[in-house]
Structures are given as structure tokens and as C-alpha cells.
Design a protein around this nucleic acid. Structure first.
Lengths: 126, 126
DNA sequence: ATTGTATTACGAAAATATTCGTAGATAATA
DNA sequence: TATTATCTACGAATATTTTCGTAATACAAT
């Protein structure tokens, strides 16, 4: 069975969980409401669906559930990247990279880090 | 008015148009059918919707329409990149770049090109 | 125990995206 | 001109995603 891709809303929730660790529906909803306007039961429903899909696990604590992401940030990022590469960049990772670096200000430090990273990639995975 | 994001199917069609230039519904559908299985009227419908949205322009040639992408590949790529950065990479272009380069084999030549690109970025846009 | 408050479960409405059937228009050609 | 093949327009069915109302449940406070 192929792992399905999280939807937009699901990704927003995953973001919070990845960043803050396990959390309740209430906590997630509070974070989301800082920017958007989303009802409590909406957040609840989405998280229940994610639980059904296996994206989240949960544990009862008193009367509430504490949810935890079961899929990793890295794996999901890679999956989305692959998709984007495929659907918008014709499979060329390089083009994507250049576009990502080009149209936004990257600091000198960041550019250096990328260079180091390139060196490491090249230097044979010692 | 904020430019809406193309859907998955719309992106597939844009891909073909960006690569091959203006084309008829029939031509697009033929290309799509090389990999997927999609009915002619489905492709037609999607392209008509894209026309309504302003993603495509068209010109009558005989009894058929020749469609042309009105949104650029680069702009759309950037838009999707920004979205991905935001929803999955916490806004860090660098992390995205590293992830993109890491989990796939990039040729020596590609890596060199990226290095050159970095040099140019740094070298002050002379 | 009764009341009040927060949470969950359930179902379904609303919004969006995908799919295609059918009818009518257009042009080529027999 | 009649026939045929192809294309467009239109509407609608289906699927997916997002949204939330309502009722049941669990806990806390009175």
C-alpha cells in the first residue's frame, strides 16, 4: 500500500506537531487560529481523519487525546518534493534548486553551507 | 486579485504546453494518454476551465481551438515552491535545497553547475 | 447528585476537483 | 446536399476536501 499524500489542512497540522511535539486538538487549533480562522470541530475532524489514515497516533490523557505524528517530517518533505519535481520541474532537481535559491535572498552563510554540502556530496560518502 | 494555484490536472496540462508550445485539446489529450487514461472530454473540460480562470488563451483555427499558456513556467514554479516552502519546510529554502540534492543522485556536472550558480549569486549581480 | 464546561463521535452540508455523456455546431468529403 | 468525423458547449455525476452542527460523554465544581 502506497502512503497517501497529506492534504493541505493535514500538512498545516503536521507542521505544528513536527515543531512542537505531541499536542491536543485544542492546542493545535489555538496555533492554527493565530493565522487562519478555523473552528474547533473542524480541526478535531481533520485530526480524527489523520488518525484513521495512520498519520497520527493518540493517547488518552484524562478526557482528552494527545496526538503525535507517526509520519516523519523528512519523509513527507521528500514525498512532496518528488511530486513537485515531477509535476512542475520536469524531474530536474537542479532546476528546482536554482529556482529556490534565485528568487529569494539567501544569506552569505546559507550559500556557504550549501557549498559545504555540495563538497560533502561530491567527496565520496566517506 | 491573487492568482489562484493550478490544480494537479491543470499542472499536467501546463507541463505539456510549456514544453511543446501551443496545442489543441486533441494533442494534449494524446500526450496525457501516453501515461494516464483520461477521456477526451475530460481534458477538454479542464482546459475550458483553465481558459475561464485565465491560465490559458486560445485562438480558433478552423473548427478547433489552439490553446496557449498565459502563465509562465517560472512564475508558477516559484509559486508552488513558495507554497511548499511554507507548508512543509518552515520557510527555509536551504533545507529544501539540501533535501532536494541529498536524496537523489545528481551528476558531477549538475553539482558543478550549481556551484557556478552560487558563485554568480554571490559575485554581486554585475 | 446536579449543573456546567470541555471533549469526542457522528453525520452531513458546502466547497472544490475530476470525470464523462450527450447534444449541437463545424468542416471536410462523398 | 447529405453523410461522416471531429470538435465544442453544457450539464451533471462522482470523488475528495473542508467545514461545522448536534448529541453523547467525561470530568470538574458546586
Amino acid at each position: 500500500m502506497k502512503t497517501a499524500k497529506p492534504t493541505e489542512k493535514e500538512l498545516e497540522i503536521l507542521q505544528v506537531l513536527w515543531q512542537q511535539g505531541p499536542a491536543t486538538v485544542r492546542e493545535i487549533n489555538t496555533v492554527l487560529n493565530a493565522t487562519k480562522n478555523i473552528g474547533y470541530t473542524t480541526t478535531l475532524k481533520v485530526m480524527q481523519i489523520m488518525y484513521d489514515k495512520g498519520f497520527l497516533s493518540r493517547q488518552k490523557s484524562g478526557k482528552t487525546h494527545v496526538y503525535k505524528a507517526t509520519i516523519t517530517k523528512e519523509g513527507t518533505q521528500q514525498q512532496l518534493l518528488d511530486k513537485l519535481l515531477d509535476t512542475a520541474f520536469g524531474g530536474s532537481a537542479m532546476k528546482l534548486v536554482m529556482q529556490a535559491l534565485g528568487n529569494r535572498k539567501s544569506s552569505q552563510k546559507e550559500l556557504d553551507e550549501i557549498r559545504d554540502y555540495l563538497d560533502r556530496l561530491e567527496g565520496g560518502e566517506s
